[in-house]
Design a protein around this nucleic acid. Sequence first.
RNA 1: GCCCGCGUGGCGGAACUGGCAGACGCGCAGGACUUAAAAUCCUGUUGUAGCGAUACAGUACCGGUUCGAUUCCGGUCGCGGGCACCA
Length: 811
Amino acid sequence: MAIPYNHREIEEKWRKQWEAEPVNVDDGKKPKYYCLDMFPYPSGNGLHVGHWRGYVISDVWSRYKMLNGGHYIIHPMGWDAFGLPAENYAIQHGVHPAVSTAQNVANIKKQINQIAALYDWDREVNTTDPEFYKWTQWIFVQMFKNGLAYQKEMPINWCPSCKTGLANEEVVNGKCERCHSDVTKKNLNQWMLRITKYADRLLEDLDTLDWPEKVKKMQSEWIGRSYGAEVDFPIDGRDEKITVYTTRPDTLHGATFMVLSPEHALAKSLATPENVEAVEKYIAEAANKSNVDRMQSKEKTGVFTGSYAVNPLNKALVPIWLSDYVLADYGTGAIMCVPAHDDRDFEFAKKFDIPIIQVIAKDGKEIEDMTQAYTEASGLMINSGEWNGMESSTLKQEAPMMIEKMGYGRKTTNYKLRDWVFSRQRYWGEPIPIVHCPECGPVPVPEDQLPLLLPDVESYQPTGTGESPLADIADWVNTTCPCCGAPSKRETNTMPQWAGSSWYFLRYVDSKNKDALVSKEMAEKYLPVDMYIGGVEHAVLHLLYSRFYTKFLYDIGVVNFEEPFKKLFNQGMVCGRDKVTGAATKMSKSLGNIVSPDDIVRDYGCDSLRLYELFIGPPELDSIWDDRGIDGIYRFITKFWNLVMDNKDKGAAETKESVKLRNKMVYDITQRLESFSLNTVISGFMEYNNKMIDMAKNGGVDKETLKTAVVLLAPFAPHLGEELWRELGETGSVFHTVWPSADASAMKDDEVEIAVQINGKTKAVVTIGVDASKEDAIASAKEALGSKLAGTIVKEIYVPKKIVNIVVKPN
RNA sequence: GCCCGCGUGGCGGAACUGGCAGACGCGCAGGACUUAAAAUCCUGUUGUAGCGAUACAGUACCGGUUCGAUUCCGGUCGCGGGCACCA
């Protein structure tokens, strides 16, 4: 009897063998393929089967690229280890974050190694390693020198629970992205990164990327570019003017009022004596409203200032109102309102009884009882003086130039993207390498003094003032100016967690370089990333920041490419099932539905878990973990094992059938793999396995076919692949062979089964020659139908290899 | 509110450019082997009716295009995601 499948022995054996003799080696001649996983945060909870999924996908893809194309694979792993969980743990338990982080890294590394991925640990990086964050700081210094990092006193998003400032990208529905507390505003002097300077490039280069359309769209909307005009409205009776931004300058004649945000610089001064009380009250209320309140109040509110502005085109007086539906930090913080053609302005005008003037004809005429705004930019202009009769869509394009010529304003572009709030009032992050000198202002720490080490502190508690715990360390804070030597103070804020993750992928290819972030040689040889695999939750944040960093490093000549990730794949989550409702829920400690990979690897083996992670569903969609499903995978592996072991020495000859099956198998598996349909790759293996088992029962399976199947399966189940490859008499690693290619002529069938339909309903199935003529096909079909075919034949349809359909009318 | 995606057996899911709906797997039922159980193997498994061949219905719902629709078009409902007063 053949040796039974023993996953423990086999996997143990190959683990050791691969360690002694790695299969993925750079000989300097092979083409490179850089396949990157989003590096994990080393959490204390360890990995669950959901984390495995992305790592299995990337490893399968890496091994496939090694076999198909003979690539040297760059497949590194590292740790995104700065950040709040470790700091909060330190606050609670007094353990230095570096200590708990190191423990977690060691633990997770052990777990990750169970995946048997091709990770090259020589490349390992850790964002909290001074040798790494030296370069995180260095990039900041370069940004500072290039005018991209600047300080600003401004109301920022403040998370009262994390006690730190947040970037816009980190505020989700008015709540902190991390802890879900309501975000408030706070005035703080902050370090900002001028990401807006890159808005156009970040937007336009999206077209060059092989990324999911969804992610590109999200980034594009986040950047939010719009074209329009700024128009200057003189204030009636004063020398000043108010500038508004509009994307619909074509409707300028229909502006019947103007609204300023409560934070607008002129807001208070516009209040006439009889309105001053109400205006001040409104401004104060708006200032006290939290972000969440302001977003949730659906009803429009507002207050009239008593002042008027002059519409520059038709000289009409328009009342100036204040309302919190106008955002202070977008455009000019003031808008002209055309209630006839904007939903929000319409609602406001209705509520406060402001005239509505239609300036674009709908269906050629004026709307009689307007119940909602007409927001299309199509129709002829009316009530618009010299613009009457023009097509609004054309005018919309041309009006900015016309207004500019008339001297009433200028053509402009606006973005929703804001500069990046880059400082955090926390301990466990990269210190921002700046010294504040009373004489020289902010001065960067000289590059030869980097890294600026994060000092130890006595208490990790945030200070009561909202400053970083670093502010309490007098002998660290007090220093001298690197420029003039005057007594100065260090910046005490640290960088956000995104700082390290925005460029870590560059460091992997030259991770031990002491003199440069990455050498030109290594960068040119191994970068950029060919395939990036990770969760969709980073669609905007991390992926936008990384693109920004890469473009900056390109501009200063560090790298020779502008986009870091050529191809992106977002894998879905693995969910648990809610014990009561049965609904899919995210795996979490609190719900107690976490499945640990460790037990499964022990009981079923790494190869089984790898296959099951893929078989569970389409890789891009969320899936539900089912403990029982893996039994089916284990059965498949065992059956395949037995098939190979029973047939390898039988010497069965190749037959037409076996050659056809082999080629079809190669074709199907490769196709599905290339299109990333990994779940159907596995089901395909099962089908071909079943066919080969049938074949074995009827005489045996030839060795070449078995070998082909083993190679195809190897990227998915690498231990099994290596073991069976040797059992089939090979001496080298299965990963050093070549991915088979399918011979189309060998796959061709002589006969094919087609459905026979009457009026589109299948009534029979017939087998006919592949190249049968229409006449022959229909004759066979009629024969099969026999007496079922009744009535008058109206039409006969034959689609080769698919169907015969006979259209019949009853007599 | 706007934008995007999705809706198929008891469950996870298949079905390439419109062409035999439910591949593959789980579960379940029956059988074989066994003193017995596990493991393994075989058979069946969308629903309704029928011993049966078979017939009819069926891919969220309503309608359309087509010889033929899970697939295309219009509308409705439900679920998930993104944006959220960006003028």
